[in-house]
Simulated assay, not measured.
Amino acid sequence: MIEIDVTTDSQGIGVVVPKGRLTMVSAPQVRSTLEQLVDAGTARIVVDLAETTFLDSSGLGALISALKTARKAGGDLRIARPTEAVLTVLRLTNLDKVLRPRDTVEGAFYV
């Protein structure tokens, strides 16, 4: 399974750090973690992908699902610091236009 760190900053923004491979095996856990954050009232979320070594279509699906959930709750989901492998998948699928990667976690909502 994947290790997922979850914190909330002083502005009430949830920061989620999936560590490892975000694939069909780990995507349900990531999706559930993100949905639980929104259900608990944290609708603005940054997914820090600096420690995500691989991303497949199931992982993309988990991120898009969480994006929709966050937006329905009046928030948003942003991604930050994707690895080159993750960025390649985002570019190949054109999802870098929807999930626009940010250079820093701090800059995801403040830039």
Rank of each mutant, 00 (worst) to 15 (best):
I4A: 15
V6W: 09
V6M: 12
T7R: 15
T7V: 14
T8Q: 07
T8N: 06
T8W: 06
D9Y: 12
S10P: 13
G12S: 10
G12Y: 08
G14C: 06
V15F: 00
V15P: 02
V15W: 00
V16Q: 00
R21T: 13
R21Y: 11
T23D: 06
M24S: 11
M24I: 08
V25I: 09
V25E: 13
S26T: 13
A27T: 03
A27S: 02
Q29S: 09
Q29K: 06
V30K: 00
T33K: 12
T33C: 12
T33G: 08
L34R: 01
E35K: 07
L37A: 04
L37K: 00
D39N: 14
D39W: 08
A40S: 14
T42A: 09
T42G: 05
A43M: 12
A43G: 15
V46Q: 01
V46H: 00
V46N: 03
V47F: 05
V47Q: 03
D48Y: 01
T52D: 02
T52H: 01
T52P: 03
T53A: 14
T53L: 10
D56G: 06
S57I: 09
S58D: 05
S58P: 05
S58K: 04
G61P: 05
G61W: 06
A62G: 12
L63W: 04
L63T: 03
I64R: 14
A66D: 09
T69G: 09
A70E: 04
A70W: 04
R71T: 05
R71W: 06
A73M: 09
G74F: 04
G74Q: 03
G75W: 02
D76P: 07
D76S: 12
L77I: 11
L77R: 05
R78A: 06
I79R: 02
I79D: 01
I79H: 02
A80F: 02
A80D: 01
A80P: 00
R81G: 01
R81E: 05
T83D: 07
T83W: 06
E84L: 07
A85K: 10
T88L: 10
T88V: 11
V89I: 09
L92P: 08
